[in-house]
């Protein structure tokens, strides 16, 4: 009896993980198309139009192309690390989704230290970028990897301070408790000015930097670094880096939705009949759109500006936010 139950829960956990991973792997397909459409319409052109209806099969064509490309490993590269790096970049962002609750019933794991786990695992993906840049044995890739390490380490601190404010409001590290603390309409969400608006601002800026998106995509910076850390990559390995970037974008978006927009909660009580999954997906898509919209609107920060923003503005602001939150909670 006990053994059967144990096997059953194990099976459920495995099934949930597989479904989550499949969703993460499938999402970039439609979203590369959506991103290119948004890019096109921002620039007053239609974007992909030729493959299928309004170019909807374009990601499939791109995927086939990437699969069939020759897999080039530079002769003087560190071959083992070179092959390992894309996987190290991708896996942590997929692992973040284990802790993110879609609703109070749909989740992979309900950890009591969920947010701590997310920050710890999310910090690991940086190794992929550094190793990829270093193992390529190319100056551009190395510079990209160096920038990645400096950028992500400094912004991780700011993100941590932003999250501490949210944790103080919820008095819990559990992601579900954080969402429950924002129950009861839009006024109780952490994004409101009397809650954690400053933390939300810090979190979003740091999130853009963590996901390596414009205006903080200095690790790629095709203007002056070739293609940054993935200069030497081609074919499927390059695709896995791109997959990692999309997974990071979704992870940051999902985190922002859970921590600041009240996860599965509806904004007004008369909209409660709409299931929580829909609200979560709407909030997730809103942030994903934000990522794509800003990518094609803004220029890139210079490297010293990036460091100034991180260390001189965001981190002091985060400390002040934590102090004021603590003072007001007393």
């Amino acid at each position: 009896m006990l053994e059967a139950l144990l096997a059953n829960t194990l099976l459920i956990v495995v099934l949930k993980s597989i479904i989550a991973v499949l969703i993460i792997f499938a999402l970039p397909l439609p979203f590369t198309w959506i991103e290119r459409k948004i890019a096109g319409h921002i620039q007053q052109r239609p974007g992909p139009m030729r493959v299928g209806f309004h170019g909807i099969l374009q990601p499939v064509a791109d995927g086939i192309k990437l699969f069939l490309k020759e897999d080039i490993v530079p002769e003087k590269a560190d071959k083992f690390l070179f092959k390992l790096a894309p996987i190290i970049t991708l896996v942590p962002y997929v692992a973040i989704f284990v802790a993110i609750p879609v609703t109070d019933t749909i989740y992979v794991s309900n950890m009591n230290i969920g947010i701590l786990y997310v920050l710890a695992i999310g910090g690991l993906s940086i190794y992929g970028l550094i190793l990829g840049g270093w193992a390529s044995n190319s100056k551009y890739a190395l510079l990209g990897g160096m920038r990645a390490s400096a950028q992500m380490i400094s912004y991780e601190v700011a993100m941590g301070f932003a999250v501490i404010g949210v944790i103080m409001m919820a008095q819990s590290l559990n992601m579900q408790d954080i969402v429950r603390a924002q129950d009861g309409g839009i006024l109780n969400w952490n994004i409101m000015p009397h809650k954690q608006l400053v933390a939300f601002f810090i979190f979003m800026v740091a999130g853009f930097a963590e996901a390596n998106r414009i205006p903080f995509d200095l690790t790629e910076c095709e203007g002056d670094l070739g293609c940054g850390f993935n200069t030497e990559y081609s074919g499927m390995r390059f695709a896995i880096f791109a997959l990692g970037e999309y997974a990071a974008m979704f992870a940051i978006s999902a985190l922002a939705a859970v921590l600041f927009l009240g996860g599965w909660n509806s904004p007004f009580s008369f909209l409660d009949f709409i299931p929580g999954v829909v609200w979560f997906v709407i909030k997730l898509l809103f942030f994903v759109y934000l990522f794509m919209w800003f990518r094609f609107s803004w220029p890139r920060y210079r490297y010293d500006q990036l460091m100034t923003l991180g260390w001189k503005i965001l981190i002091p602001l985060g400390v002040a936010n934590v102090l004021i939150t603590g003072f007001l909670l007393l």
Binding site: I38, G40, H41, I42, Q43, Q44, R45, P46, M49, R50, W293, F294, F296, S297, W298
Partner: peptide, 24 residues
């Protein structure tokens, strides 16, 4: 500055495209 830039691109997102659909 950033927000005015973003609002410009948001308005352009829903304007008419100027592309000539040449070969098709």
């Amino acid at each position: 500055d950033l927000l005015s830039g973003a609002s410009l691109t948001f308005r352009k997102t829903f304007s008419k495209t100027v592309t000539m659909h040449y070969p098709d």
